[in-house]
Design a protein around this nucleic acid. Structure first.
Length: 807
RNA sequence: GCCGCCAUGGUGGAAUGGCAGACACCGUGGACUUAAAAUCCACUGGGAGCGAUCCCGUGCCGGUUCAAGUCCGGCUGGCGGCACCA
């Protein structure tokens, strides 16, 4: 009989839909395992061939855990608010809610087509009011605990569309839609105080099992640095405070720089003699993004503030002040001390403006470039620090500054508070009203969810406000506190809001009294293993850790951290290694692969294709190899003997394969697990196999290709024999004693060059191996006229002879 | 620019510091077939040689080591992120 994957896959998917073998049971006495993948954004293009990579890998892990006796939760949902849907809706005049509903339907069908073991009864959709009720509830908790506050922040403003743009919509400084210039405009925004959690977000990484590069990226993003805030007296009578980690270079300061947004500039308007030039520079800088401003290789620009000087508190010298856009307002105080001798950006700036370059650490040539001094550099031209090493000088100057009252120690973080509002329609409404008398007032919890009104017009407004602001009957309301007239907040939450705690909602998705029951959270949390893209490391992953920690602090969730383990997958690229994109026309649709080869082949191939952590390019040709493998497995089902025992000739390889596959799945090395199974199948195909051999193979294959396995399992009578599906059987175990081979092939080298191999009994000693090695013709030839100086012998591995000519 | 990561045959990739190229794809030759597809068998890193065999080979330059794809230093190229894409 032919391997009719279409019929088989349909048959088993229909079966699973009814028998629900993937249902997770809260409170079950078996050990629990919570496997999580990042829930997809349901885009209009449907599932992309990149999606199945992480989904299949975690599916395999979860299926193996089930066979190992775990109560497994592997849930799925949709992160459905967001910009692309809204823009699609505007362009095609279809309401975003309708677009979302259709997209989710397509995604659901496609995911089911791939046979994933998701517990579909727990599916969540972030745009469902029953879901975002809890996002809003959490926002109210932030608000109550003074973790949310309003401030003005610059936003991208399209001068053509008259609306706020996302960074992604700004291409080379112009709007991607209309091509008009984009400028920075101040806008009032809700912020979340993630910075309050900066230290804990760093410290608590230590106890987590995240891959190292994720930890490093998060630590660097939070960017803790220990330094000093130094006060410089300004001739206007003000005090200018700068943060520096290099207090040791204070004697090398030859100028100061302010960020164009620094409030001092407006304050000093009357004292700055060249105000027009300064103001023009400031306006020019407002057009640029932080990213453009930060580029090191670009030419430094700036304007001197004529009439303004400051005094260096270390040596009393008077130094000039500039405004320049390489200083950002967002980090530190927006004021920077210029040390051109020892910082390349400062050196470039000083060189351009003809400022003195003072060498304070010996060892470089500051007339040619900045000398970035190391810890053991020796201080010069630095008063009391002369002769100290940099390492000694840093704390010495910190002490000196504190003693003399012009500085104090300070820990700074690069992490910034989180801008939590968007002037958009397709997001969760913020459950606050603004009352003239009472200010910002939360709506009562009993009124949650505050539903997003189903409006006709969700187009962007031309005043930069959210589309909701035009809905006056929705906006105008009464104050829950005083009953007076009030207006609703019309901005919405960013897409990130929905993804911060979705993994908690999965635990108890139909609960309308609580976010999730205590029982469910205590049973399931933390997530045992969360796999997702590296691109989410510093935003989603950090944001969600922050939300979860806050919920822990207010007693809502039971653990300090949401995810115990984090791994990351590489991208699937198009043929030729290019990113898959519509414009390149190289997007592979999983439906096509499934139609041509079946879901099992797609699952197998996407795992076989390469190292899970690395980017890999898709090849339509290569899929055939995976299909051929499944054809061979199918044929074994027809050809194996009726003997229910494991055949002695395959026993060693079977045990070796069980070990390899078991270990590789836990390390996400699915490609080598599959290669090992291919080797086993090749052996079975060439030598023949028993029904007993096949039984083990089917169990090993079950997590990878569940449909074909269940079909063969049933066909060969195992289903009847055991009364279970293969996926419900125990995971096969291997016997260490069966793995030990009685002989081993060892490499023989002369002076590190391979001369041949010898087969010797396992654990042979050096003399035995030496005796065998000297029988090799090539070894004998190499040794002619030579004597052995040294022998390197590693048991069961290698024998290396170091020779020299005989005298 | 800053932070992180990566680089191995024609291709995807494999290799606790110890026989580079497992397992596949492509290709070549053969079997089967009226023929093709499918399947099966053999070969398949580069170079020299009839051959035994020899030389070269893991992005580039240097180092450590008996031994380096693997460790260290310096480059080059590519990828991810840079806070309003998800």
């Amino acid at each position: 009989m032919k391997y009719d994957f279409t019929r088989i896959e349909k048959k088993w998917q229909d079966n699973w839909e009814v028998t629900k073998p993937y249902a997770a049971i809260t409170g079950d006495p078996r050990p629990k395992f919570y496997g999580l993948i990042e829930f997809p954004y349901p885009s209009g293009q449907g599932l992309h061939v990149g999606h199945p990579r992480p989904f299949t890998a975690m599916d395999i892990v979860c299926r193996k855990r089930r066979m190992q006796g775990f109560n497994v939760l592997y849930p799925i949902g949709f992160d459905a608010f967001g910009l692309p849907t809204e823009n699609y809706a505007i362009k095609n005049h279809i309401h975003p809610a309708v677009v979302t509903k259709n997209n989710i339907k397509t995604f659901t069908e496609q995911l089911k087509m791939l046979g994933y073991g998701f517990d579909w009864d727990r599916c969540v959709d972030t745009t469902d009011p029953k879901y975002y009720k809890w996002t809003q509830w959490i926002f109210l908790k932030f608000f109550e605990n003074d973790m949310a506050y309003k401030t003005t922040m610059p936003v991208n403003w399209c001068t053509g569309c008259k609306c706020v743009l996302a960074n992604e919509e700004v291409v080379d400084g112009v709007c991607e839609r209309c091509g008009s210039p984009v400028v920075q405009k101040e806008k009032s925004q809700w912020m979340l105080r993630i910075t309050k959690y900066a230290q804990r977000l760093i410290d608590d990484l230590d106890d987590l099992d995240y891959i190292n590069r994720v930890k490093i990226q998060q630590r660097n993003w939070i960017g803790r640095s220990e330094g000093v805030e130094v006060d410089f007296k300004v001739n206007t009578g003000d005090t200018m405070t700068v943060f520096t980690t290099r207090a040791d270079t204070l004697f090398g300061v030859s100028y100061m720089v302010l960020s164009p947004e620094q409030p001092f500039l407006d304050k000093w308007k009357d004292q700055i003699q060249n105000w027009d030039a300064v103001d023009a520079y400031r306006k020019e800088a407002a057009r640029k993004s932080d990213f453009e401003r930060g580029e090191l290789n670009k030419e430094k620009t700036g304007v001197r503030l004529e009439g303004i000087t400051v005094t260096n508190p270390a040596n009393g010298e008077t130094i000039p002040v500039f405004v320049s856009d390489y200083v950002l307002m967002g980090y530190g105080t927006g004021c920077v001390m210029g040390v051109p001798g020892h910082d390349q950006r400062d050196w470039d700036f000083a060189t351009k403006f003809g400022l003195p370059i003072i060498e304070v650490v010996a060892g470089g040539d500051v007339t040619k470039e900045a000398y970035v001094a190391k810890e053991d550099g020796i201080m010069i031209n630095s008063g009391f620090m002369n002769g100290m090493t940099v390492k000694e000088a840093i704390p010495a100057m910190k002490d000196y500054a504190e003693e003399h009252g012009f500085g104090k120690r300070k820990v700074n973080y690069k992490l910034r508070d989180w801008v939590f509002t968007r002037q958009r329609y397709w997001g969760e409404p913020i459950p606050l009203v603004n009352c003239e008398k009472c200010g910002w007032v939360p709506i009562p919890e009993s009124e949650l969810p505050l539903e997003l009104p189903m409006v006709e017009s969700y187009e962007l407004t031309d005043d930069g406000e959210s589309p909701l602001s035009k809905m006056t009957d929705w906006v105008n309301t009464t104050c829950p506190k005083c009953g007076g007239p009030a207006k609703r907040e019309t901005d919405t939450m960013p897409n990130w809001a929905g993804s911060c705690v979705y993994y908690v909602r999965y635990l108890d998705p139909h609960n309308d009294k609580e976010f999730a029951s205590k029982e469910a959270m205590e049973y399931w949390m933390p997530v045992d293993w969360y796999n997702g893209g590296m691109e989410h490391t510093t935003l989603h992953l950090l944001y969600s850790r922050f939300w979860y920690k806050f919920l822990y602090d207010i007693g809502v969730v039971p653990t300090k951290e949401p995810y115990q383990k984090r791994t990351s997958h590489g991208m699937i690229l198009g043929e030729g290694g290019e990113k898959m994109s519509k414009s390149r026309g190289n997007v592979v649709n999983p439906n096509d692969i499934v139609a041509q080869y079946g879901a099992d082949t797609l699952r197998l191939h996407i795992m076989f294709i390469g190292d899970f952590e690395k980017a890999v390019s898709w090849s339509n040709e290569a899929v055939k190899g995976s299909k051929r493998f499944l054809d061979r497995v199918w044929n074994l089902g027809e050809r194996c003997t009726d003997d229910e025992n494991i055949s002695p000739e395959h026993e060693a390889l079977i045990h070796k394969t069980i070990k390899k596959v078991s270990e590789d799945i836990d390390e996400l090395k699915m490609n080598t697990a599959i290669a090992a199974m291919m080797t086993l199948v090749n052996d079975f195909t060439s030598k023949g196999c028993t029904k007993g051999d096949l039984e083990v193979l089917l169990k090993l294959l079950s997590p990878f290709v569940p449909h074909i396995v269940e079909e063969l399992w049933e066909m060969k009578g195992f289903a009847e024999k055991y009364g279970k599906m293969c996926m419900q059987m125990d995971w096969p175990s291997y016997d260490e004693s069966k793995l030990v081979e009685d002989s081993v092939e060892m490499a023989v080298q002369v002076a590190g060059k391979l001369k041949g191999t010898v087969v010797v009994p396992m654990d042979s000693d050096q003399d035995t191996v030496m005796a065998e090695a000297q029988k090799l013709e090539k070894v004998q030839r190499s040794m002619e006229g030579m004597e052995i100086v040294k022998v390197i012998f590693k048991q069961n591995k290698i024998l290396n002879l170091i020779l020299k000519p005989k005298k």
